[in-house]
Amino acid sequence: MTGYLIVSAVLLTCGVVCMASKRNAVGVLMGVELVLNAASVNFVAAAEFGPPAVPVQVATADAIGVGLDGQIAALFVIVLAAAEAAVALAIVLAFFNQHGTADVDAASELRG
């Protein structure tokens, strides 16, 4: 469990760094994907290692597990990530069409 969590942590850190340091909008998107994947890894690891899902009515505070729910959550994450990527890419393309670049630093028209 620890190993998976550490992998997840590394993924998340790299994703955040990627988001914060890439000027290319697509690079930022990739960072987002990494962060989402870190979450997926955590979900699936919890599904595997965490206590099994039990009916809520018999669950005690420490017995509430995830079981296959974790995998399903991961599936949802993946699907939503796909949707997010599609929209984000469409925005990037629209942005590129307007500004001629995919540099997110150019997208600062809403600055204070």
Partner: peptide, 21 residues
Amino acid sequence: VAGLFFLLNAPMVGATQLIVY
């Protein structure tokens, strides 16, 4: 990560990760 999913007994998630992601 998909491979990790296979290791975590989640081949469905892994496959989805591969095909979708």
